[in-house]
């Protein structure tokens, strides 16, 4: 074997080895995904029961459901979407239509991206000092506000991106007909960007429906049924946290059932948003 043969052999071996390792890395990632989902679905399904949706969260040792927690999560998430979406769409409109290349726009985009990945527990602390500490008690509104701060940057980002994708001929055509700019934005651009913005809102909803940290000291928890947003409110993630950390088996089972419901909901939302994007793409091509 000549030295150059040996060199070629070595290079081919290194190449083959590293490519195999890269495949193993992908398998490694999939392995955890399957393991986590399998555990959640198997244990969660075993703990599912009809009473889950009709009974209240039980005291230690007795039987119950998650009705108040599911309701609380639903109400606070919808309130957060209702607060965060309009502000987010408006801010995204400013970035895409009025500050596309300006330094101010870049600065706001930068801040928005940081808000997007900021630790959610920090947002909870922010709302605590801003609302809870001033009002004097925990409330569903504070929880909704903390969640709205997570919704906001997601909607800003998608609105900005989707509006930038709208062809400028569309703006010019509408403006040349004498339509004022705000009408162009609301009636032409929003209509064209709607599927993308909807996807962003759905993704934001998926993100907040599993959020625990910002709710711990804003909405706190509530053992009873409560539809009053100015009072402490139960939510599925917080109940999961409380029950999973407890020593009782019946609470563990409820926590798994809650985890199953949340995971299923989040996965369905992300599949739905993907489907909307794909359909929209096919529509345009």
């Amino acid at each position: 074997m000549t030295p150059s043969d040996r060199l070629y052999l070595k290079r081919r071996l290194v190449n083959g080895f590293n490519l195999v390792v890269s495949g193993l890395c992908a398998a490694f990632g999939l392995f955890w995904l399957i393991w986590i989902l399998w555990t959640t679905f198997k244990t969660g399904l075993a703990a599912m029961k009809p009473g889950l949706f009709t009974q209240m969260t039980p005291p230690p040792g007795s039987d119950g459901g998650l009705a108040n927690a599911l309701f609380g999560s639903l109400v606070m998430s919808l309130a957060a979407i209702a607060i965060g979406t309009p502000i987010g769409i408006a801010a995204g409109t400013f970035l895409a239509e009025y500050a596309r290349k300006s330094a101010l726009g870049e600065a706001i985009r930068f801040v928005n991206d940081i808000l997007l990945s900021a630790p959610s527990i920090v947002l909870g602390l922010f709302v605590y000092t801003l609302v809870v500490a001033q009002v004097g008690h925990f409330s569903g509104w504070a929880g909704a506000l903390a969640l709205a701060l997570i919704v906001l940057p997601v909607v800003v980002r998608t609105t900005d991106e989707m509006l930038q994708l709208v062809p400028s001929q569309m703006r010019e055509a509408a403006l040349s007909l004498g339509v004022p700019q705000w009408k162009v934005t609301v009636q032409v651009l929003y209509r064209s960007a709607l599927p993308g913005i909807t996807t962003g809102v759905l993704l934001a909803l998926a993100r907040i429906s599993g959020e625990t940290a910002p709710l711990l000291f804003t909405a706190l928890n509530n053992q009873y049924w409560s539809a009053d947003l100015s009072q402490p409110m139960a939510s599925v993630p917080v109940v999961i946290f409380q029950y999973a950390m407890s020593p009782y088996d019946s609470w563990h089972a409820l926590a798994w059932a809650g985890a199953f419901v949340v995971t299923l909901f989040v996965l369905l939302l992300s599949i739905l948003s993907r489907a909307i994007l794909l359909r929209n793409k096919a529509h345009h091509d």
Partner: peptide, 20 residues
Amino acid sequence: AIELLAGIPSIIYGMWGLFV
């Protein structure tokens, strides 16, 4: 599939971590 991993709520990771 890898991106699905990013969508799973962190509390599920926590529970899975603690119990499994």
